[in-house]
Every structure is written in structure tokens, then in C-alpha cells.
Design a protein around this nucleic acid. Structure first.
Lengths: 189, 189
DNA sequence: CCAGAATAGTCAGATTCTTGACTAGGGAGA
DNA sequence: TCTCCCTAGTCAAGAATCTGACTATTCTGG
């Protein structure tokens, strides 16, 4: 039941359309939750029916009209209740880790390649999150922004995303090194 | 479809019962995949029907009998095919991050408390993973173990788990500090 | 002695998430 | 001009996951 709360959290500070949400919740961007467009449109429909978000039609020229949503007072109440309740523990679920778990039994070169792909993706996210953070804090430095800034929630989750991707990048490189040392297969030094 | 591969990966090196798997895939322990007992028993049934794992009854005294499983040759092939295919990108999905995203709109003290809870859990996992790593590498130091060790797959995923939990712990503390600075509410310094 | 935890599973039902397709108009590049 | 991508959504079906309950036996702590 947390998708709805993630959506509410995203609609607190600004109005967004389902399409905009879909882009924010995309795998390549999301820093606090991930979901597919279909889930988001469905959830918005439910949230609106329950009065937790309010929608508004925006007529546009030269592109399709859209409906934008904002969290209502009762949406905020719902989110506060959610915050008051215990958080579920987070856990790891990652294809790549499964492959590494089986590292001693599978093709090392394939694994190294996949670690490289993941590293590339992580590097892209690091760039993205770095830019996002700079944009959010504006002229202030981080300490100052976090002390006095206006809206720090998104900044804090973005910091988490950044740390996570950095960790991913380091780990991928380290593991690839270990595997290369054990299997000097390519011999293309 | 990755649960089956996670199970196969767990049954490569040693026989395990569903019950043992269930404990290894528990939220508090899992370092490469998480699943509930029900899922694991169901998956084992399917895997055995498809010949990817082989089960064997073990009669026990003073406790219920059990069935232990091991990956078969065709299970290993399946896992190799899985390794050859591209990995799905990993993503974040965490209640606590949703709450932090909404930090500017919810009760700071509750948030700080939850960050503390998560930090405690992370510290416990750090202990656990540290002990696991020491046990796996035995007398060797890490570099040596990773160069010459026998089975490094589980070690590598455990390293990832450890790094992740350390990152979680640091982040929780940092965010709690930030929130305390902005809301010197308790005034119980 | 009795309660509760650990071992070792099973079943049904609901919810959530993913896959894949489909509509429709406008702008940009080859 | 033709095609592809972007905006902005919708629908259906299936797979994966979670909630919650239920059966047995044995060992352990109070």
C-alpha cells in the first residue's frame, strides 16, 4: 500500500500530471520509489475517487490536454498517518546480485560485462542526481541549504539515491576487478 | 522470473531444505534476494517438477523429517542462460524514503524515531554480515581470499549487503541530525 | 507442568506489479 | 513526405508477491 503514499508525497509541493509522475517514477530517475505509468494512472484514479488528491483539467495548445493533480488536506492526513506507522524493512532484490552469487559457476566474462553495464548506468544516475542536487540547493552550499532551505525532503531522498549509486559503482568496479584477476581470460592486456 | 534463479543460486553449493532457504531469504538476513517461505516452497515444487532441482527426503529423529534440494545440471544450465541475459535495472522502493520525501510536511519527531529504528536494524545487519564474511574467508585476509578462495560468489554479494547497510546507517544518522537541527523540539539536550 | 519458540511445512485469497498492446495529435529530422 | 519520437493517456491479462491462517512435533525456560 505504499505506492499511494509515494504518489501523495510527490504531489505535495506541486501539481503534476500522470505523465509527469510516470517520468519521475521511472527506473532511470526515481530516487525514492519506482513505478510504471499504468500503476500511476490507476493509483491516481483511486486517490481522486477517495478524495486524497484533486485533479484539474489543463487545456493545452499544440499538445494533448492533461489532468494535473495535487494532494488534498485529507491526502496529507493520510500521509501523516502513514508516517506515524512503522516502516517495513527494506530489502535487496537484484538480478545482478543473483548472478554474482553464482559467480563460481557461471561465465566470468559475461558477468564482468554485466557489471560494466550496471556501472555505466550507475555513473549516469550519479551525474543526474548530482545535477538535481545542485539545482535544488541553488547558490547555497549543502550544509546551509539543509539548515535553512525551504523544501529539503526531495533533497534528502536524492542524497540517498546518490549514495546508493556511488556504492553500486564502487562495488561493480571492485567485483569486476576481482573476477578479472581470477580469470585473466581475455589476455588482452 | 528471478526468484527461481535466486533459489537455484542458493542450491548450487549445498543442499538445503525449504525451511533453511526460508531463513536465508528472510528480510533480516538475505544479502542477494528476499522472499517469503510460501514463495520458496512453491518455487521449489515448480523447480523440482521441471527437473532444475532434485529433492531428497531426510529422515530425522527428534524433529520433523525434511526434504533437501540441490540444483541439477539442467538447473545450472538455466542459471547460466539467465546470467547471459541482460540484468533488469535495480531500483529503490522504500517506505522510509517516501516518508523522508514528505519530510517538510510531516511530524519530524516521528521521522527521527523511524530513522533511529532503521539505523538500529542496519547496525544489526552490519554485525551479521561482518561475522559472515569473517567466517567465509577463514584465516585468510580479504585480498588473499578473493584471489585464491574457493567460493567467492556468496562473499561478493555479502560485501554488497554490508556496503548497503553501512550506507543506510550513515544516511539515517545524517538525516536525523539534519532534522534535529531544524526542529530542536525535544529541547532535551 | 505449561507456554512458547523452533523445526518443517501447506493452503487459499488478495493485492501489487509487469507485459504488451492500443489511441491520438504534433513536431523534428532524413 | 515519411517516419519516428514526444506528449498524454487507457485497457486487459498474467505473473509475482504478500497476508493470514493452519498442521505437527520437539525442545526450552519459568
Amino acid at each position: 500500500m505504499a505506492l499511494r503514499h509515494a504518489v501523495l508525497a510527490a504531489l505535495l509541493d506541486e501539481e503534476r500530471s500522470g505523465y509527469q509522475l510516470a517520468k519521475a517514477f521511472d527506473v532511470g530517475v526515481a530516487n525514492f520509489w519506482h513505478a510504471l505509468p499504468q500503476q500511476l494512472y490507476a493509483e491516481l484514479t483511486k486517490l481522486e475517487r477517495e478524495g486524497l488528491v484533486a485533479g484539474r483539467e489543463v487545456v493545452q495548445e499544440s499538445r494533448p490536454n492533461k489532468r494535473v493533480f495535487r494532494a488534498t488536506e485529507s491526502g496529507l492526513t493520510e500521509l501523516r498517518d502513514f508516517t506515524a506507522a512503522a516502516s517495513k524493512p527494506s530489502f535487496i532484490r537484484d538480478d545482478l546480485l543473483v548472478k554474482v552469487q553464482a559467480a563460481d559457476h557461471v561465465d566470468a566474462e559475461q558477468l564482468i560485462e554485466q557489471l560494466g553495464d550496471r556501472a555505466t548506468a550507475a555513473a549516469a544516475k550519479i551525474e543526474l542526481f548530482g545535477a538535481l542536487l545542485r539545482q535544488m540547493r541553488g547558490d547555497a552550499d549543502e550544509e546551509e541549504f539543509l539548515r535553512t532551505g525551504h523544501r529539503i525532503g526531495p533533497y534528502l531522498t536524492c542524497l540517498r539515491g546518490l549514495a546508493f549509486e556511488r556504492e553500486t559503482l564502487d562495488w561493480c568496479r571492485r567485483i569486476a576487478d576481482v573476477l578479472r584477476t581470477r580469470h585473466p581470460s581475455g589476455s588482452t592486456l
